[in-house]
Design a protein around this nucleic acid. Structure first.
Lengths: 122, 122
DNA sequence: CCGTATCCCCGTGGATACTG
DNA sequence: CAGTATCCACGGGGATACGG
């Protein structure tokens, strides 16, 4: 790699990057992952902690994250049914990277607001 | 901070994080920023390099990135008009963080594909 | 308890045509 | 050259109701 900040390495990895960025850019994805960072949690546990999320959106978010290998879904065949969601190692790594984005965001809160105000004016 | 991987620091920074993640998760945002990493570029220059992007989407993407303070838009009042887009320092920093996400994506390409195949089956 | 199914609104993103 | 304007298809995302 000649350029240090070069991002795209191939067509495939570019597409994968976009899909991951838009995945974690979904409305509830970051908070759901954050909820799972300390320990696995059950569906309604997440639902309560993430209120006012709807069941539908919680399900959709969990399925999406699962389909990208970021979280696991474990069904315990008990009565009543019990399902646990947890971060995969990959998901934990990605979350650590995202916390870098969070720190960037905090550092630039002022600049973001200023830029938005400016574009308001036009 | 007790937990090392904790992301959200406040309501405001949480909202800002989400908005930034969804911004860079937009379809053309990452490639547009990457195009500007080495030097500022003009509108049609970007249009050619990012083909088959449409004018409309290029404009929309540039406006969005500008409104978050990630790129600058400089108009040179010449005939014909000349407009240059460039990364801000903040944008350059963010791009560096995103390259971390790109590396993560490359490392986990296999896992992503496997997870997607698995969720296909259901 | 853990979801699906249905309905509906709205924003994203594409094609095409037109303008300062 | 650097955009706007218009139209349209699609999917994200919310409310509510029902099922295993």
């Amino acid at each position: 790699m000649a350029e240090s900040a070069e991002i795209v390495e191939s067509e495939e990895s570019c597409a994968a990057l976009r899909s991951i960025l838009s995945r974690v850019g979904e409305k509830w994805a970051p908070v759901v992952m954050t909820e799972l960072v300390t320990e696995p949690r059950r569906f309604n546990e997440l639902r309560r902690r993430l209120a006012p999320i709807t069941q539908r959106m919680l399900t959709a978010t969990l399925r999406g994250l699962e389909s990208d290998g970021l979280i696991t879904r474990t069904v315990h065949p008990t009565v009543p049914p019990q399902v646990e969601y947890g971060l995969t190692d990959a998901g934990r790594e990605l979350l650590a990277i995202l916390s870098g984005v969070a720190r960037w965001t905090d550092r630039h809160l002022d600049a973001i607001h200023t830029a938005r105000q400016a574009s308001r004016g036009r």
